[in-house]
């Protein structure tokens, strides 16, 4: 009276591929910055500047541009666009003034 046991629940050999192939993947594409918290470097800079602005109406676009002279206007605009889309910043008195939602 032998039970025919089948080792069905055996060990499944799960190979762990481990993406160790590339250590410290370099950022080769010039405008593809490393995302830190889901934001690119440029978006982070813009967000930080807006956060740092003490004025109640927020930072205006002119100031933003002049503080980010190494970036093109369109790049700054894009970052602002993205950040407001995500809800990190919002426009205040007009479309040129931005305030951060993170720092209240």
């Amino acid at each position: 009276n032998k039970a025919h046991s089948q080792p069905s629940g055996g060990r499944a050999p799960i190979g762990y591929p481990g993406m160790t192939g590339m250590s410290d993947a370099g950022n080769f594409g010039g405008n593809n910055f490393m995302p830190i918290n889901g934001l690119t470097a440029i978006q982070n800079q813009v967000l930080n500047l807006i956060k740092a602005c003490p004025r109640p109406e927020g930072l205006n676009f002119q100031d933003l541009k002049s503080q980010l002279q190494h970036m093109s206007v369109s790049a700054v605009k894009q970052a602002v666009d993205f950040l407001s889309n995500e809800g990190h910043i919002y426009s205040t008195v007009d479309d040129d003034h931005f305030k951060s939602t993170d720092a209240d």
């Binding site: 407001s84 995500e86 809800g87 990190h88 919002y90 008195v93 939602t101």
Partner: peptide
């Protein structure tokens, strides 16, 4: 200035929706 409040509220909603 209602506009600011509204924008802020909208932004916070977007942020909240993102974080869910």
């Amino acid at each position: 200035l209602v506009r600011i409040q509204r924008n802020k509220a909208a932004a916070l909603l977007r942020l909240a929706a993102r974080n869910v």
